[in-house]
């Protein structure tokens, strides 16, 4: 990877809050220009702390961050000018009008007024018709769009989306993904945090997993999804029945409670197992499929010493 391709470089960043907890433990990460990186992790893993440090909201206890060649401390103006931040909570002034809010953000970042740009941007976010509405009059989904509009008002090169779809309905979530895709096509680098695997799967190029303040792994989405996408089929057979040898090739494992567990990733292999079960005349009393939870995967990854 050529150095000029790196737009954000996090090196050994750690954070211990004054009241005790260690939120981040020596996180290092490089992000390529124009990519979408999803930071996946359970609540309290340190995702928001990492983003907050990069954006200047939290001071790191150790480590350094370089944004497009600018250190976030010694050259904070240039570093911050490149960044747009969409926070997790809806944090807006309730009596402000949408267009005024966007203009404020643009001016605050030192960019000259450009109403044509703001109109294009608000239109793309379906907010132009609401430009004269006070924020408090908008629906929850619209307020989130205003947050995005404010973050984009100064034409940032990197956009941070902290849990952009937490608590929003399916339709709005799809809209958000479309917005992200559109931004990427305009060359904006996007880093989003989420605790939905589906979200990472839908829009990210790479996925980073944070757990307990550590960046457990960063991997291309495709390969990670093959690992994360593993599912299990639990079979309960008729009393006293055992698996016939014909099914041995499927490699089922027997659990302590007498059920059989079959691990699979592709739908085709499941169909083959079911066909073999039917052909062998095995009585299946119960059948249950389950996706391993994100928690299970974290536990496994952490246990394996973050080998990836």
């Amino acid at each position: 990877m050529d150095d000029t391709d790196i737009i954000l470089s996090v090196d050994g960043v750690a954070k211990t809050y004054a009241d005790g907890p260690k939120a981040l433990d020596s996180v290092s990460l490089s992000i390529r220009r124009g990519e979408i990186l999803a930071l996946l992790g359970p609540n309290g893993a340190g995702k928001t702390t990492l983003i907050s440090i990069i954006c200047g909201l939290v001071s790191p206890s150790a480590g350094s961050v370089i944004v497009d060649g600018h250190d976030i401390v010694s050259d904070y103006r240039a570093a911050r000018a490149a960044i747009g931040l969409v926070p997790q909570e809806v944090q807006l002034e309730p009596f402000e009008k949408v267009l005024d809010a966007a203009r404020f953000s643009r001016g605050l970042f030192g960019k000259a007024r450009d109403d044509a740009y703001l109109q294009r941007m608000l239109t793309a976010l379906s907010l132009w018709d609401k430009r004269r509405s006070e924020v408090k009059a908008l629906s929850g989904g619209m307020k989130r769009r205003v947050l995005i509009a404010k973050a984009l008002a100064h034409e940032p090169r990197i956009l941070f989306l902290d849990e952009p779809t937490a608590g929003v309905d399916v339709e709005l979530r799809k809209d958000m993904w479309a917005v992200v895709e559109e931004l990427r096509s305009n060359g904006v680098t996007i880093i989003l945090t989420t605790h939905y695997i589906e979200e990472a799967e839908a829009i990210a190029d790479r996925v980073g997993i944070i757990s307990g303040g550590r960046l457990v792994l960063v991997e291309e989405k495709g390969s990670l999804m093959r690992r994360l996408g593993r599912r299990e089929l639990v079979l309960t057979l008729g009393d006293g029945e055992d698996l016939p040898p014909a099914l041995a090739r499927h490699g089922l494992s027997r659990s302590a409670d007498g059920t059989f567990v079959y691990t699979f990733t592709e739908e085709g292999s499941l169909a083959a197992l079911l066909a073999d079960l039917a052909a062998a005349g095995v009585t299946v009393r119960d059948l249950e499929t389950r996706r391993r939870s994100l928690e299970d995967i974290f536990v496994e990854l952490v246990k394996n010493g973050a080998d990836a």
Binding site: R80, E89, S105
Partner: peptide
Amino acid sequence: FFPKFVGSIYELLSAPV
């Protein structure tokens, strides 16, 4: 105090000011 109260202070703190 008001931006602190409603949370919008995040923008001031993350701005190049």
